[in-house]
């Protein structure tokens, strides 16, 4: 019975930890499909965290913070699109610069606005409420694992099929995929490549803002410097692992979420320094990416490594 309890808790925390990964992964997926590597996701997400807490505290409701985080995320996504399409700035360097810009700016604003260093917890801001899904949440064990979570978790589950439908069933999605495979061909077919890229990056920014909001006000209601801690990059890795397929990317995120949940458990139960377990999810990323590359090389008949 105790083992089952443990498993339930592990599952529940896997889902919670995977949520921001799922949302950024869907953002990365859109940019992957439109042919751009969006390494700015980390910064977009962090700005979502910051806005969710600050705006939430000002408005008095965490939901207000979530809404603004989405808007600011989308705006930042559009800004990134402006730099890399209209102004033709280098994708990687601009992405890196945006990440560091957000990292520095949020830390700086923390000091001048609230006079605090490192982290900020507004006293009067409550995190989003737990949503218990009627009936389903009453199921023993499963109910606790799947149906008693903060609301954005369910949103992240919805985001996966919605992204898939957008990409594979709508006109906009077809254009996104077309631009990603062959920009010139899309242009000669009369598609505005720039507009499609703005669309994909702006939507991606919105998803990143949402992911950041979940981190900040989904369960706790606080902002910490660099609280995204590389989650954006893990979302990116998940998309490459899945070669741009939405459901496979989601699966990869769940796997990373599981490893993160596992390392939290092990930290408290095993006497190995906890940093070792913190390293595990990232080690997984490296191993996975190497495995993919080896598989690819084998397929191409170029030898294993």
């Amino acid at each position: 019975m105790e083992a089952l309890e443990l498993l339930t808790n592990l599952l529940a925390s896997t889902l919670r930890l995977a949520t921001p990964l799922l949302l950024t992964a869907m953002a990365c997926l859109l940019s992957y499909q439109v042919g751009l590597i969006n390494i700015a996701v980390e910064g977009l997400m962090l700005s979502g965290c910051f806005i969710a807490v600050v705006a939430g505290a000002q408005i008095g409701y965490a939901w207000g913070g979530v809404l603004l985080a989405c808007i600011v995320g989308a705006a930042m996504g559009a800004l990134f699109a402006l730099f890399v399409t209209t102004l033709r700035a280098d994708l990687i360097v601009t992405g890196l610069a945006m990440n560091f810009f957000v990292l520095g700016t949020t830390a700086y604003l923390l000091q001048i606005l609230f006079g605090v260093y490192g982290s900020y917890t507004p006293g009067d801001l409550k995190s989003l409420p737990i949503w218990r899904i009627p009936v389903l949440s009453e199921i023993p064990f499963l109910g606790k694992a799947f149906f008693q979570h903060p609301p954005l978790i369910y949103v992240s589950w919805l985001a996966i099929p919605l992204t898939a439908i957008l990409l594979y069933r709508t006109r906009a999605g077809l254009h996104i995929r077309a631009v990603g495979v062959n920009e010139e061909a899309a242009r000669t077919a009369g598609i505005s490549v720039t507009r499609i890229r703005y669309l994909a990056l702006t939507l991606g920014g919105l998803l990143c803002g949402l992911g950041g909001a979940h981190l900040a006000v989904g369960e706790l209601a606080l902002f910490r410097e660099n609280m995204t801690g590389g989650r954006g990059f893990i979302g990116l890795a998940a998309v490459y692992f899945a070669a741009g397929r939405p459901f496979l990317a989601a699966l990869a995120c769940l796997l990373f979420g599981f490893f993160e949940a596992l390392q939290f458990r092990l930290q408290t139960t095993v006497s190995i320094p906890y940093q070792f377990f913190q390293m595990l999810p990232y080690l997984m990323v490296v191993i996975m990416m190497v495995l993919i590359s080896v598989r690819e090389n084998l397929r191409r008949g170029r030898g294993g490594i």
Partner: peptide, 15 residues
């Protein structure tokens, strides 16, 4: 100027 992973119909109508 074709998009190989898409179908013939999708390529023909693109845009």
């Amino acid at each position: 100027q074709l998009i190989p992973p898409l179908t013939v119909a999708e390529n023909v109508a693109l845009g």
